[in-house]
Write a protein that binds this DNA or RNA. Sequence first.
RNA 1: GCACCCGUAGCUCAGCUGGAUAGAGCGUUGGUUUCCGGUACCAAAGGCCGGGGGUUCGAAUCCCUCCGGGUGUACCA
Length: 535
Amino acid sequence: PREVAEAIVAELRNGLTNQISEVTVAGPGFINLRLTDAALITLAGQGIAQTYASRTIVTEYSDPNPFKVLHVGHLYTSIIGDVISNLIEVAGGTVHRTNFGGDVGLHVGRTMWAIIQELGGEYPEKLADVPENERSEWMARAYVKGTQAYDAAADNSEVKQAIIALNKRIYRLHADNDSDEIKTPFAQIYWTCRQWSYDYFDAFYERIGTPFEKYYPESGVAALGLQTVREQLAKGVYKESDGAVVFEGEPYGLHTRVFITSQGLPTYEAKDIGLIMKKWQDYQFDLSVVITGNDIVEYMKVVQKSVEQFAPDLVERSRHLPHGNVKLAGGTKMSSRKGNFLRAVEVLEIAAEANEKINGRQDEQASLGAIKYAFLKQRIGADIIFLPEESVSLEGNSGPYLQYAHARACSILRKSSDSSDTSSENSGIRLEEGLSAILDEGSIQAGGLFQADERTLLRKITEYPEVADKAVAEFMPHHICTYLYELAQIFNRFYEQNIVIGDEREAVRLQLVSQYADTLKSGLHLLGIAAPTKM
RNA sequence: GCACCCGUAGCUCAGCUGGAUAGAGCGUUGGUUUCCGGUACCAAAGGCCGGGGGUUCGAAUCCCUCCGGGUGUACCA
């Protein structure tokens, strides 16, 4: 290989362009090409490939159920879904961020049962007694109460029968909009409480910066799902079994799942089919990405396999992106201080407390950035272990480290415009002019292994579009995290070893710092993390 | 039982469309400041890449198998 490489290199050397300054053989037969400074400068100005240009993409994630609380899993999936959406957008795609949740189903029946108990009957006017800021908590308690009552009750007990009846009643509420049913006191309670849930969700999404374009309530897709499954039952895609309608997955190496219960109600499976049909009606998407926990992968395969039987094109345009669970050190699932699971807001509180403890300050921009970065820096798929104190630390691979690295660069840029009266002309100096001559190579610290010169920093900046492309192609945001951390490290080394303000190469270096800060900021924005100019 | 995911330094993770001496952070130990934000930087120690077999000139990466952990597996979502 070495000889072959040398032969190739000999040829290449004859055709060196202004893009490549040097060709060498290394190791057992590798060929190293060295780009010219001019080539690097060109590369640094390149944008992200528009691989999704003029394409419509529907993303769906978070998927909380009305009448229940947001837990840590919703936080994680919301953050991932938002970043995947961002990635598609910077690649030129038109993204519709959607959210799916169960506003019908047994869990709602259980909660409604407890709510009515709480109100002492079907008296919607009594809901006014619940203070606005306690609504979500009040409903969370009702959910727990209803669930406990249901689980404790015998099969044919009064409680269980009552809850099952409520569940059917709620379905009817949605199935027949013209009936008087929607005006009943019971219906008023239901609509009011459902709205409370959506208000609570919206407030939380706004707080963490992951907005949605549309909610798809299950009630809005149940009928379509039911109808579709019934049609395909007639065509033999689905089969009746013990009074239920199922899809038999075994011929495909999967398992059998129920789509319509023997009670005639659609399960989550049927609703999911209604959902994909509805999304298609609404958007005629080129791609539909559904982001969920990985406990649902087998389920999703069965649903998709069944759809493949009658709408293969829809399945072809669909992609399921599963992620793991958030856990605490030691591998145990995060558990709540108040119940048996950790709520989403509690994670925010934990990070804020850690920030206070480690850095002695309150700064939601930093603690939220810390959470997002901690969740995103790992490859999507496996469970992640959340270490609150490590996540907020300014030392190491953390969100706040990157925020600080950005603030620091901004400080330099600020100084340059403050201090010098000729500074306004600095912005007119083009990178090419300054850099084409020298890039301060080889200012290697005595005994050190790391170069921290202009060229090293510029070279790293040029990698940004490539990394973003890869993150887009794989739907893997962690590539961005890894890159940004390396970029910030190189900048910090550069900062340690080189003066910017007052140096004879100040103009060039300011351009470089400015370009670095822009790159870091773009990357952080992709991740949904604020890039403060001061901290 | 079957299916899927995971197993890389004490801890948390990159690297896995096979290629140069397996890389970071935390922690540990030891350093750095007449200078743009030291909330930073530099260095050292620390690895039979879970075990075994196979494919290949070459395997953390691909295949088989075993072990360990997680999840799912019919009327919940």
